[in-house]
């Protein structure tokens, strides 16, 4: 099933042409890895999907982006962003308690009852493999957690609003290898219920978790294919050079 359908997408920030003539599809229940060197447009691409780009002053775009067969600009931003969650590069807990962080989205969407919120928080923390570590101190500040725990908290916070797609923007760039492994494990389990888009600088990570992999370079999609294919016999020499570490 196609979740996202993108055609002829161009994005500019002022004079800078960040995404050029992008055409691709994203399927349900897959993990799509997006790789590419810095400034290749991969984060811009990601932030297009939940319409965060338009918060920038000088953003402009052209082209078609459809979610579930419907143009994303026909949605209310709030509805769209509820369906398309995002986990940011650095762990970004809100200055609230652990509970407050996870419950935040649900509260904003009108859930008031304490019992219901508690259920939502527990379920989300379970799914993010954080419940056992924090269940005794839900009232503590989220800043008290370690970096890896914070990032899983952010995943739980995203899950708590029951999205259909989750966007990961280099989610492990600030984490040590053990925390990274835990986050990756969480991602693999999540794909049974969600579509995941993972932007990463770490080529090995893309190979470990991605079902398909897309390679971006200077705002263009060079190639997109099954992860094994990209990593064993890419059709473009630039892809081959990038994943073998010749540049980037």
């Amino acid at each position: 099933m196609v979740k996202f359908n993108i055609e002829g997408l161009n994005i500019w920030f002022g004079q800078i042409h960040s995404i050029k003539e992008l055409r691709m599809e994203i399927y349900a229940n897959e993990i799509l890895s997006v790789i590419g060197p810095a400034n290749s447009g991969k984060t811009t691409f990601l932030r297009m999907l939940n319409r965060l780009n338009e918060l920038e002053m000088n953003f402009s775009m052209k082209g078609k982006v459809e979610f579930d067969g419907q143009g994303i600009f026909t949605f209310d931003t709030e509805v769209l962003r509820k369906k398309i969650g995002m986990v940011f590069a650095l762990p970004l807990p809100l200055p609230l308690s652990i509970f407050g962080n996870v419950a935040y989205g649900a509260r904003m969407h009108g859930v008031r009852q304490k019992k219901k919120l508690e259920d939502i928080v527990e379920k989300a923390l379970q799914e993010a493999y954080l419940w056992d570590e924090v269940k005794d101190r839900l009232g503590a500040s989220a800043f008290k957690l370690s970096g890896g725990q914070q990032q899983r908290l952010c995943i739980a916070r995203t899950l708590a609003v029951e999205p259909e797609v989750i966007l990961f923007d280099e989610p492990c760039s600030g984490l040590d290898p053990i925390s990274t492994a835990k986050v990756e494990e969480a991602m693999r389990k999540l794909k049974q219920h969600y579509s995941l888009v993972l932007v990463t600088n770490n080529v090995k990570q893309a190979a470990r978790v991605g079902d398909r992999t897309a390679f971006f370079l200077s705002g263009e999609l060079v190639e997109i294919d099954k992860t094994e294919k990209i990593f064993t016999m890419p059709s473009d020499t630039r892809t081959d050079e990038y994943i073998r570490g010749k540049f980037g």
Partner: peptide, 19 residues
Amino acid sequence: SFREVSYSLGASKWQTIRH
């Protein structure tokens, strides 16, 4: 970044400001 996180969870502009 706090604002971005709040928006990304589907909060409206005023909710983000208020909370």
